[in-house]
Design a protein around this nucleic acid. Structure first.
Length: 552
RNA sequence: UGUCCGAUAGUAUAAGGGUAGUACAACGGUUUUUGGUACCGUUUGUCUUGGUUCGAAUCCAGGUCGGACAACCA
């Protein structure tokens, strides 16, 4: 009996193609347009394309689909490469659609020569008008029957810069009554006198997506060109160009793009958040970008695991954020060292522990690790910071923490009993007084006392401080895309909470960027990229799963 | 109201004519020096109507619902 994981529909296709000998080597590609930062949806496509060739052999190219000079920048090329590498994938060839501009131009000439393309001087409005509607056929342009010679001449003059932007375009001559609007003489070249991030001013005509993508696939002998569902209707055109150009028959397959709850995924919307300063940048830890997730503390493994778990299918989907959070918790639970930090401090005084005395306690770093992650020294004294929420003057039902007369264990230290507390004029608790039980020392407890609750703490005298940033979902609704009105109306005003001065264990001043830490009982945190030794900054990656909530 | 794609628990994803399974979520329990982790358990599902068949989530037909497509964007 086989325990093999079942195949998704693309894997089935590929296994079949390989088995029947249709292809000997699998070749895929990841083809981003360098006009923004990559997000978790791209990660799904990256994992798919690279994962397939890792599994079945062959290779994957990275190809930048840079056919629109006005939106593309080298900054984006660089960030996209960095993100793919960070995820742990290596491309075989680094390619650019702009590498093929000469070849693509020759393809266009071939089409013209076959009488299958013409230069159209209609305006954009006229072309839209003539296009018809899904239920009514289109009408031919006045320029549709220009001679091959005239088209050749005009197209050469387009290339030579004799016309301004928008004066004319090159269209494929296909079928004006096709039920597929894309087949109604699609535009394949337009004039743009603009500087291209790689070809500079060498060209003033640029191919449209449909006249670049399939041909680029074909040039690279991509066997399986995998894209998202919105390109389904492009497939007919994709195949038409390959047929007419008589070039390598790459095949296009489509899968459903990723949607995640409580965020947006389109580059256009993410760019809006950046441009309108609603987030701090593409790598804001609240963004669903790969760089944002990285800064938030997500590991490449957790993202790949997530992509593995969501699967590949053709049905529209909206994945719950909780699955992504599960993936990073699962990873960090095994790898993150445990430390103590107090985010909302209140003073706890141990009345029977000598003032000025210091005791060094030993704590294991990670109970989940094979070797327990080693140990560290934790200073203890008579004045500690503990979490304000760990004390209740009038304890709720099933309250395991501190309350007048209650006993609780201080993690890695002693059991204490609350004997008294002080309040200010406003009735806020300002100080808690406890007695500690010397025989209850962690690891050598002979007190015989059992307590339900264990709380974290930091010695006030030894504590260091840090800024801590707590993040929550970026939007208040599951699917901002499908709500009425502007998606920005649904931004969560409390998506970031900054704690200017939290108290942390001394060892945390040595915290390394790129490593995850668990602040015991508070969640997983990482060092922010803006952190300095003078001003430490931690980001909360994700909270711990919370199983208990006090009942009102 | 055209063409195409899709529809299985709350969310995803399997079952390829023969026991509807898995994960996350939710809920309950055991363990625990993190109300974490681990472990155990529970709840919840084949869009609809017909047909073919001994037998249908699966094949066929009609319907319903959702999505994509009419940029000189990709």
């Amino acid at each position: 009996m086989s325990e093999e994981k079942s195949l998704n529909f693309i894997e089935e296709l590929i296994e079949n193609d390989l088995r029947t000998g249709k292809y000997e080597t699998l070749v895929t590609r990841f083809p981003p347009e360098p006009n923004g930062y990559l997000h978790i949806g791209h990660a799904k496509a990256i994992c798919l394309n690279f994962g397939l060739t890792q599994k079945y052999g062959g290779y994957t190219n990275l190809r930048f689909d840079d056919t629109n000079p006005v939106t593309e920048k080298t900054e984006y090329v660089n960030s996209q490469q960095e993100d793919i590498k960070w995820l742990g994938f290596n491309w075989k060839n680094e390619l650019y659609a702009s590498d093929y501009f000469d070849q693509l131009y020759a393809f266009a000439l071939k089409l013209i020569t076959k009488g299958l393309a013409y230069v159209d001087h209609s305006t954009a409005e006229e072309i839209a008008e003539q296009k018809g509607t899904p239920t009514a056929p289109g009408k031919p342009s006045a320029y549709r029957n220009r001679s091959i010679a005239e088209n050749l001449d005009l197209f050469a003059r387009m290339k030579n810069g004799e016309f301004g932007d928008g004066v004319c375009i090159l269209r494929a001559k296909i079928d004006l009554s096709s039920p597929n609007m894309l087949m109604r003489d699609p535009i394949i070249y337009r004039i743009k006198h603009a500087n291209h991030h790689r070809t500079g001013n060498a060209w003033c005509i640029y191919p449209m997506y449909d006249f670049a993508h399939g041909q680029s696939d074909s040039i690279e002998q991509i066997t399986h060109s995998i894209c998202t569902l919105e390109y389904v209707s492009h497939r007919e055109l994709y195949d038409w160009f390959i047929d007419e150009l008589e070039i390598f028959p790459s095949k296009q397959y489509e899968f459903a793009r990723l949607n995640l709850t409580y965020t947006v995924m389109s580059k256009r919307k993410l760019m809006q958040l950046v441009n309108e300063n609603l987030v701090s940048g593409w790598d804001d830890p609240r963004m669903p970008t790969i760089s944002g997730l990285r800064r938030r503390g997500y590991s490449p493994e957790s993202i790949k695991e997530f992509c593995e778990r969501i699967g590949i299918a053709k049905r529209e989907n909206l994945i719950e954020l909780s699955l992504l959070e599960f993936c990073i918790r699962e990873d960090l639970n095994k790898s993150a060292n445990r430390v103590m930090a107090v985010l909302d401090p209140i003073k706890l005084v141990i009345t029977n522990f000598q003032t000025g005395k210091e005791e060094i306690l030993i704590g294991e770093n990670n109970p989940e690790a094979e070797d327990k992650g080693g140990t560290r020294e934790i200073p203890f004294s008579n004045e500690l910071w503990i979490e304000r929420e760990d004390f209740m003057e009038e304890p709720a039902k099933k309250w395991f923490r501190l309350a007048p007369g209650a006993l609780v264990r201080l993690k890695h230290a002693y059991i204490v009993k609350c004997e008294d507390f002080k309040k200010d004029a406003n009735g806020n608790v300002t100080e808690i007084h406890c007695a500690y039980i010397p025989e209850s020392k962690s690891g050598e407890d002979t007190s015989g006392i059992n307590v339900k609750g264990t709380i974290h703490w930091v010695s006030a005298r030894h504590a260091k401080t840090a800024e801590v940033r707590l993040y929550d979902r970026l939007f208040t609704v599951e699917s901002p895309d499908s709500e009425d009105g502007d998606f920005k109306e649904y931004l969560n005003p409390d998506s970031m909470q900054v704690i200017k001065q939290a108290y942390i264990e001394p060892c945390l001043t040595q915290a390394k960027q790129g490593l995850g830490y668990q602040f015991i009982r508070k969640g997983y945190f990482c060092v922010d990229k803006d952190s300095t030794p003078e001003q430490l900054i931690f980001n909360r990656t994700v909270g711990l799963k919370e199983a208990w909530k006090p009942k009102a």
